[in-house]
Design a protein around this nucleic acid. Structure first.
Lengths: 150, 150
DNA sequence: TTATTTTTGTTGCAATTACAACTAAAATGC
DNA sequence: GCATTTTAGTTGTAATTGCAACAAAAATAA
């Protein structure tokens, strides 16, 4: 059967490695760009939702956001409707970084899709969304201690 | 244009997270399964090649392999033709782990491809290999200090 | 209501990750 | 030949990552 785990892992590590190197000149440390773009696009998002979207441990996300806050890139305000939740927003400083990151991501996306026709690009994006949906439930289950049988 | 970076990243993190949790009962720590399967399939492979295939920093791979060696899972022998190189091989203990990892990976791959026809699976695998090729040169270049213009 | 469970977030660890900087050997250039 | 560059691997250091274990608020149950 076709194997997709390995290329997906290699592509993800390569793109992440490139971004981390390129964003060092923005004083962003490893992984921070991921959180930044999501918060910029979904202002008021809370930690657990962000971690679920990105598929990282919530404690990892927590510390990344703490650092972004310390560095004045995001700020957090208690939710008016739920005292447990802290809504996350971009500062002006953070807003200024967003287009730079977005431009880099767009470029990497173009490089990744070189030689693909528009129809192929759409089809690949559709496939990947289906794969993500397929795997999301298992990720949550295993994270919560569920044992998969195979 | 179609966006593929985000789902690829999310899928890779989800699958990696699942594997790392499931392989803890094999006494494998984070990431080690990646190196193990490649060494099992390409006995005698050297560090730099392994790092290039996996798209991780060579110092990361070096320390992962040092630990696998300490734990008796792989062993290294100097190359007979090049005194710089150290060839990496599986021990009997490591060989015993391979089928377990392989079975898990196969299962995750099946979950990921649920709802895909055989033709779609092949097509997705083909697309991903093309993307990997597209991005490999940029990864190496940026890793070596090259500055991309965009 | 009151008790229990789920949601949301935080710290304490222990480990991986990777940029610098460095050796030693091989390959290349002149 | 001999000097320079490239290949291959290691260690120092600093940071992210994430499993446990916890606390507080909200939702659910009884």
């Amino acid at each position: 059967m076709a194997e997709i785990l390995r290329p997906i892992g290699a592509i993800a590590r390569a793109l992440d490695g490139i971004s981390n190197i390129e964003f060092k000149e923005l004083e962003l440390s490893r992984g921070q760009y991921l959180y930044l773009v999501r918060i910029a696009e979904q202002p008021g998002i809370i930690l657990e939702r962000l971690a679920a979207i990105l598929k990282v441990d919530k404690t990892t996300a927590a510390r990344a956001i703490q650092k972004l806050e310390r560095n004045g890139i995001v700020e957090r305000r208690p939710s008016p409707t739920d005292k447990k939740q802290k809504q996350i927003f971009m500062t002006a400083k953070g807003q200024a970084l967003y287009p730079i990151i977005h431009r880099e991501n767009t470029y990497s996306n173009q490089v990744a899709l070189q030689g693909f026709t528009p129809a192929e690009r759409d089809q690949l994006a559709d496939y990947l969304n289906r794969v993500e949906t397929n795997i999301a439930a298992d990720w949550t289950a295993v994270k919560h201690g569920h044992h998969r049988n195979y």
